[in-house]
Nucleic acid binder design. Structure first.
Lengths: 249, 249
DNA sequence: CGTACGTTTGATCTTTCTCAATAATGGTGG
DNA sequence: CCACCATTATTGAGAAAGATCAAACGTACG
């Protein structure tokens, strides 16, 4: 099957990173019914308060999860890159507790909720893969709590940039630890719990220290090792090492 | 079955809050092999970096999840109350990405990992309940990211106190929206991403405003409605309404 | 070529942190 | 029951990180 003719191959690749799939599992995923949708920045994949009825897989472009505070403040609680299924978090609950929106223009494969549920139930390999991908997402949430709660602006921002680098790299979307940052400094601020102004200053600080090189939205890390140190970045929480045992559920 | 003779009844109650169980499911849980353990504050249920081999259910006492920053800073990323299974987050992964420790003295039911996995796999009702409890935990992580990232100290602390009140209330462990706070102000600080000194001052502020009444570690809310407002607290993220649809997995 | 949006910069203000000391509390052994 | 010790809670003074306000500058795009 040629990748270009198989829009869900990125999802399969993503799932297999952390949980093995049989050839039958892969075929079942490829046979999932879906609708392709080209979407603009800001388009909702799920809206807080709505009942989830479908599952959107990000084929290209970037997306984010956000929650709003009572005073109007916005917090971005997660970022999504191509190949990720964005609705597992809401799929098995009755009402979405947060919204998912597009960061950039992109393409979605929209799959009916019941088709995914049925597949996860009937094929234990897929059920396990979905479960593990949920657990890894939860692990990332915890790291974000730590990042926002206990690290200063410089470390915090560096950490986010590192996480994004590794995740893109893993999906084959980075160029030598450099990438196009798909968001404005305001969105970056909402992701790390800072002010846009302070993000700007911190970015310039990192730049002046030679930790990052920027060209428009493109960032590159001349000294990756030092960048990891400054960002207090340990990728264990991403659970990228292949699983060895306990593949029961 | 008398509750006192059935240590896992609180777990069953907790799971049933969000996902229905059949009588057979309940019996299967009650029949789970377990070891009772009385533990002191600080005892580890899981240690970061270790492979999870068992699942601890909190029967009495309180526990927390924590992660450490490179500079020694600590962030508490979750709190657990009696009736909660504390290892679902790690159970299906190979290595724990954070630690879980006792906040207070308490009792654990320690269940072998494989027994839980087997049950979740063979009984779809239980598998679904485990999945939903994971999803609700993830939802709480997201709310914490928002709380720590976008709310000021007063709101943040008030929010945490509200969350704890509702969770205890739901498990029948609160007395009229009042409860014994099971942690020091330093631990509270590590949970909300503040300094112990500032937590102290913020607590006194809330007290002076008549939002809370303290007596040692006991807190009470004379005006619950206002407390919720001040804490920007909307309990949707706890997903306490019974589920209506989509119980497939 | 003008408009909207995003970035950058300066000046000033606030919240929260840090450091340090004192007071209260709970638990322990006698 | 009391004295003592180790934690925990409280308070003050000063410092600092980050927020706020406001303006200028760039850049993309219709």
């Amino acid at each position: 099957m040629h990748p270009n003719r198989d829009p869900l191959h990125l999802l399969i690749r993503k799932l297999e990173l952390q949980s093995p799939l049989s050839e039958d599992d892969r075929a079942a995923i490829r046979d999932l019914p879906y609708t392709l949708k080209s979407v603009e920045p800001g388009t909702y994949a799920i809206r807080e308060g709505d009942p989830p009825t479908q599952c959107a897989v990000l084929l290209s472009g970037f997306a984010y999860r956000q929650k709003l505070a009572g005073d109007g403040g916005r917090q971005i609680v997660a970022l999504h890159i191509p190949g990720e299924a964005m609705d597992f978090q809401n799929l098995f609950l009755d009402v979405a507790d947060h919204s998912v929106q597009m960061l950039t223009r992109g393409e979605l494969a929209v799959i009916p909720r019941h088709a995914i549920q049925e597949l996860a139930r009937s094929r234990s390999g897929i059920g396990h893969a979905v479960l593990v991908s949920l657990l890894v997402e939860a692990s990332i949430f915890r790291e974000w709590v730590l990042n926002i709660g206990r690290r200063d602006a410089r470390t915090r921002l560096a950490h986010l940039l590192c996480e994004f680098a590794i995740r893109l790299e893993t999906q084959g979307l980075a160029d030598d630890y450099g990438y196009q940052l798909p968001m404005t400094q305001e969105q970056l601020a909402d992701a790390v719990g800072l002010t846009p102004v302070h993000v700007n200053r911190t970015l310039k600080l990192l730049e002046s220290e030679g930790l990052i090189v920027r060209d428009k939205r493109h960032v590159r890390f001349p000294d990756w090792r030092r960048m990891r140190e400054i960002g207090d970045f340990n990728q264990r929480y991403l659970h990228l090492e292949p699983q060895q045992a306990g593949r029961v559920l």
